[in-house]
């Protein structure tokens, strides 16, 4: 029985241009959403503290 943890990797998958492009778009969208959420929470906190009057 072969050892799955010590077996040799028999090849690498090369992603297509479309796959890389889709992944990049997803990553950018996640980054924008996370940044937006952080800004959202920060602004809410400032409003609740009455910083904006």
């Amino acid at each position: 029985m072969s050892d799955p943890y010590n077996s040799e990797i028999d090849g690498y998958y090369t992603p297509s241009t479309e796959e890389l492009s889709a992944r990049k778009k997803r990553n950018v969208a996640i980054a924008v959403c996370l940044f937006g959420f952080v800004v959202f929470v920060f602004l809410l906190m400032l409003y609740k503290l009455g910083v904006f009057g």
Binding site: Y13, P15, E19, A22, K25, R26, A29
Partner: peptide
């Protein structure tokens, strides 16, 4: 599963 990469974009979400 073959390569764990999807073509789904933000529009699909």
């Amino acid at each position: 599963a073959r390569h764990h990469m999807s073509l789904a974009g933000p529009g699909d979400y």
